[in-house]
């Protein structure tokens, strides 16, 4: 009987001492953390994609709580809904971030940009671009080994087997920017998603002069400035033998599209052109 008693007493004593130590330690070493951080983290998408510019959702939540003004901060995955939820928790004003989407600015498929060499080595764009200009004559174009696809955490990209170019699945793209960092050639760009997802962009980043650019790739931007001249909104910038459409200024009038001699300017999600009403359209579309 006494054995049982001793056991009970000694174990209870041990437990009590341990409890006291734990209590003291938890008091002494307690770190105060704003409970709102947890609340904010709760509404964030928990993808830890880094699209906000911070390493992971927790870090973003901390930054949001800490910041006085969160209007310039945005979670590209959650979008406006998430940011409004965050704003209501924190009692701050959410910014109005424009929805963005990643755009591949190269159309140098096997057909357009014939291969001039045969690359054999580690199958990643990072190694190829460090080694040389790439398999085609264009040193600016896509290497086609899919570093961007490997970096995408949202299943928003795949490599098109036929063209050898990456394709972005618009519905899945959250504009986190991972593919932009992964591309050693800076081909992918985040652009405004646009009304009804309509966008116009120059699908080429070649900075060569016209002749060599055209020789390397049939659909290269040859820097002829035709689009620049026709643009009524001053949205096109000519630099380094290359046209760039500023999506902030572009009113999607599409005047530049037929102007391009190499068809390097792409329009996406527009209704198929109707030749007859083509002249009127520019006036009607930029209404939004």
């Amino acid at each position: 009987m006494s054995v049982v008693l001793i056991t009970i007493v000694s174990l209870a004593g041990l437990g009590a001492i341990a409890a006291m130590i734990l209590f003291a330690a938890s008091k002494k070493f307690q770190v105060f953390e704003d409970p709102r951080i947890d609340e904010v983290e709760e509404v964030l998408p928990a993808t830890n994609c880094g699209g906000c510019g911070l390493p992971g959702c927790r870090a973003f939540a901390e930054a949001l709580v800490k910041a006085d003004d969160i209007s310039s901060m945005n979670c590209p995955v959650g979008g406006a809904d998430t940011m409004n939820a965050v704003a209501s928790i924190l009692g701050k004003e959410a910014g109005t971030a424009i929805p963005m989407v990643a755009v591949v600015r190269c159309n140098g498929s096997c057909e357009h940009a014939p291969k001039t060499t045969n690359y054999q080595g580690a199958q990643t764009c990072a190694v190829v671009s460090a080694l040389y200009g790439g398999e085609t004559g264009c040193a600016f174009g896509c290497d086609g080994l899919g570093d961007c696809v490997a970096s995408c955490k949202f299943d928003a990209m795949y490599m098109d087997d036929e063209t050898g170019l990456p394709v972005i699945i618009e519905e899945n793209c959250v504009a986190c920017g991972a593919c932009i960092d992964a591309c050693p050639k800076n081909i992918i760009e985040l652009r405004k998603k646009g009304p009804k997802s309509r966008r116009i962009f120059v699908s080429c980043v070649n900075k060569d002069k016209g002749a060599p650019a055209k020789k390397a790739c049939a659909v290269a931007c040859i820097g002829c400035s035709k689009c620049f001249k026709i643009c009524p909104h001053d949205a096109i910038e000519m630099k380094d033998n290359h046209a760039y459409i500023d999506y902030e200024k572009c009113k999607l009038c599409r005047k530049c599209v037929p102007e391009c001699p190499t068809k390097a300017i792409h329009e996406i999600n527009f209704p198929p052109p109707k030749p007859k009403v083509k002249k009127e359209e520019p006036e009607t579309t930029p209404a939004d």
Partner: peptide, 8 residues
């Protein structure tokens, strides 16, 4: 010019 590695 294009050097040995195809870069300018």
């Amino acid at each position: 010019i294009l050097d040995a590695s195809g870069y300018k």
